[in-house]
Design a protein around this nucleic acid. Structure first.
Lengths: 223, 223, 223, 223
DNA sequence: GATGAATGAGGATTCATTCAT
DNA sequence: TATGAATGAATCCTCATTCAT
C-alpha cells in the first residue's frame, strides 16, 4: 500500500503536513499572547505573525482572517476544557449542596481561565459592546449551552426561556466576577472568588425550590 | 468692524469661550454617537469630527487625543447623573426595604443608560479587558465612589476593604446585567431588569445584617 | 459680509482650498502618467501617489479609490475634448465628402490622443477583456454618444439599433487603429492613420446611400 | 512493489514524461479557465494551481513564471488552430469571391474563439495597451504571419511593408470586431459578425485590384 | 479659532515565487 | 516529482495627529 498520488486524493481537505500543524499551534499560541496583551479588537494579524516569528503570508496560509483565528482558538479552548473537566460539566450529585456545586464549577472555571488567559480576552470578543452577537460567537454559544445543561438539573421546572435567561445571567455574572478576580492577586483575589461564588449561589438558590439546597447552604435563612 | 449685533470689545473673550463651549458640546455629542455606533476602539477621531460637522483640526484644538474625549465625556456624564439624581445617589431611608432601594437604584441607573447610551460604551471603554485600569478611568472611579457611599449606609460594619470589594462587585454585576438588558427588548428586557435586581438584592441582603432587610428580602413579594 | 461660521454652511459639499485643487490636478496628472506606463489594471494607488510626490493618505483625501481617479480623469478628458473640438463633434456640412468628414474626425481624435495618451489607456480600462462593461465606463458611453450623434446625420435612415451597432463598430475600429498608430512612428504612423481612415470610410460609405458621398470619395466605383 | 500493472523499468522515463505532459495539459487547461474568468493580469498562479488541483510548487516545476504559461497556451492554441483548419489557413481559390474568402476566414476564426475562449483573453494579453510588444507575444507573431500569408495571395503586388501593415490592420480590426461579437448574443451577435465581415471586405476590396473581386463586392448580394 | 491638507506608519490581505520534505 | 509551507514585498486603504493658511 504505497502512498501513490492515487490514494492521496481521498482525504483532500486536510492534506496537511506535520510542520503545518506545528505552525498552526504556534500561531494560535502567538494569537493568544497578542489577544491577551492588546485585546482582540486591537490585535493585528501582523502582530500575531510577528509574535509567532513568521511572515504575514504564512499566517494567511492557515487562517483566512483574524476572526478565523479567534474562532479556532475558541474551539480548541472549548475542547481542552471538555477534555480537562469531563463531558458533563458538572454531573450534579443530588446530595451536593448548591454551594458546593457552584463553588466547584467556579473554581474549575477560574482555574481554567488562569491557565488560559486568552479565554477571557476572547469572551470580550469582536463585538461592539451593547450589541450582543452570540450567533457569531461560538464561544458564547458553547458556554451558554454548557451552563444551561448544568442549570437544567438544578431548575427542572424552569421554562426554556427562563432557563436561557438564567444561563445568560450566570455567564454575565461570571464574566464580571472573573474580571475582578483576574484584576487582583493573593488574598484579595481569593476574596473576590468567594464573592463571586456568593453571588451565584444566592442568585440561584431561590430558584431551585429547595432541590440541591437541602442543607440551606448560604448564610441566610429564616424559614 | 461689527462682528454681530451683540456686545463687542468687552464681551469678546467671554464670547469666544462661549463658542468654545458650544463646540466642545457639539464634539462630545458627536463622539457619543460614534462611540455608540462603533464602540470606542473602532471610533476614529475623523469620524467624530465629521459627525460634529467640523474639521479634524478643530477637534484637536479642544482635545489632545481620542482618550481625552472619552474622559471628558465620562466626566460630563457623571455630572449629569449627579444633577439628575441628586447629590447623594440614594439617601437611603432606614424604613426602606433593601429590595426597594436596590430596585430604585437599578431603575435609575438603567433609565440613565437608556437616556445616555454612551455611558455603556464608555464603561466598556478603552481598557484592555482583564487589565482593570481604574486610574485612567474617572468614570469607574466616580461610580465606585458613589456606590461605596451608597453601600456604606447599608453596611455600616464593613471594613473599608470589604466595602470597596462589595462596591466593585456591585458595579461589575450591574455592568453585566446592563449588557443583557440592553441586548434585549420588551418583556424580555423587563425580565432581565428584574433578574439584575434579584441578583443584587440577594447578594447584598446577607451582608446587611438585617438592616433595611427587615421585611425578608427574597425574590419578590407583595406586602 | 464677514465669512462667519453661519454663511459657510451653505456650500458644504465643495469647501475646497486652492491647494486642494492643485493637488487634485497633480494627482490626476500623476495618474495619467502611471496609467500610461503600466496600464490601468496594473497601476497602483501608491505608485500614483509616489509619482505625484505625496503620501498615499493624501491621495485618499481626494479620491476614494483607483476607479474614482480613472473616472475623474475620463471626465476631465471628455470636457477637454469638448472644449477643444466644439460641442457638436462634427457638424457635418452636407457638402463635405464622407472621406473628408471621417478624415477630419480621425485626425482630431488622433491628435487628441497624442496630446493625452491616457485617453487610450483609459479606453482599455478596468474591465476584463471579453466582458464589455459599458455601463460602468463613462468614457465609452460618452464617446459612443458622440459617435452616434455624428453618424445620425450621415445615416438618417438607420434604425436606432443599427445606429448603435454602427457606432460600436466605429469606436472599436478606431481603437484598433489607434493602437497601431500609437505603436508606430513617422511615416509608418502616417500610413497607419491613412489605413484607419480608409477602413472607416469604406465601412461607412455603403451605409450612407450616397449622402455626403456625392463625390464618390473612395477609390472604388463602377455604377 | 508494483506501481501499476503496466510496464515497469523499461518504460519509466517515458512514463514520467507522459505524466509530465498530462500535468502540463492539466495546468494549461486550468490556466485557460482562470484567464477567461479573471483576465490575464488578475489571474494568479496560485489560482491556476488550485484550479488544476495541484500545488503551486508543481506548477513551477513546469513553468518558470506566469508569462510562460500564457506563452505555452498561445502556442498550443496556434497549433490546434493549424491542426483544425489546415496548414494554409485559406488556400484561396482564385474563383472565390473576396466576400466568400473573408466570410469563411472570419467564421472559422470566430468559431475557433468560441471553442477556445482563452484565445481572446490571451490576445488582450499581458502587454500594456499602447505598447505593442509583439516580440514577447508569439500569438500575435504567428497570427500575423498567417494573415500575411493569406493576404499575399490576395495582394500579390503589395510591398512587404504594405503587406505587413495590412495584416496588422486586419488583425486589429478582427480583434475589435471579436470583442463586440463576444459581447453580444443571438441575433445581435450575428449582426456584429456580419458587420465585421463587411468591414474587412470593404477594407480589402480596393486593395485587391479586381482580383478575387470580380463580382462586385459591395455589402451583400445574391447572384 | 477654524479649516482642509498632509502625513506616514500601520492595518488586512495577496501573490509570484522558492524551499524543505 | 509533488507537496504544502514559507516568504516578503506590494496591494489598497485608514487613522491619529500635525501643519499651513
Amino acid at each position: 500500500m504505497p502512498d501513490t498520488a492515487e490514494n492521496q486524493a481521498k482525504e483532500q481537505p486536510r492534506r496537511r503536513q506535520a510542520r503545518g500543524e506545528r505552525r498552526i499551534a504556534q500561531l494560535l499560541e502567538a494569537a493568544a499572547t497578542v489577544f491577551c496583551n492588546t485585546g482582540y479588537t486591537a490585535a493585528s494579524t501582523n502582530a500575531i505573525a510577528r509574535e509567532a516569528g513568521v511572515s504575514p503570508g504564512t499566517l494567511y496560509q492557515f487562517f483566512p482572517n483574524k476572526e478565523a483565528i479567534a474562532i479556532e482558538l475558541g474551539d480548541r479552548l472549548m475542547h481542552e476544557m471538555r477534555d480537562t473537566y469531563g463531558e458533563a460539566l458538572a454531573p450534579i450529585d443530588p446530595a451536593t449542596t448548591l454551594e458546593a456545586a457552584v463553588g466547584a464549577a467556579v473554581d474549575r472555571f477560574i482555574s481554567f481561565n488562569c491557565d488560559h488567559p486568552v479565554f477571557f480576552a476572547l469572551m470580550h470578543g469582536p463585538d461592539i459592546p451593547g450589541r450582543i452577537a452570540e450567533e457569531h460567537d461560538a464561544l458564547h454559544v458553547t458556554l451558554l449551552a454548557r451552563i444551561e445543561e448544568l442549570l437544567s438539573s438544578l431548575l427542572p421546572d424552569a421554562s426554556p426561556a427562563d432557563l436561557s435567561r438564567t444561563a445568560h445571567m450566570c455567564l454575565g455574572l461570571y464574566k464580571a466576577g472573573l474580571e475582578l478576580v483576574l484584576g487582583h492577586e493573593g488574598a484579595e483575589q481569593e476574596a473576590y472568588i468567594q464573592e463571586l461564588k456568593n453571588v451565584l449561589v444566592r442568585y440561584l438558590e431561590p430558584l431551585t425550590g429547595g432541590r440541591a439546597g437541602r442543607e440551606e447552604a448560604s448564610s441566610r435563612r429564616t424559614p
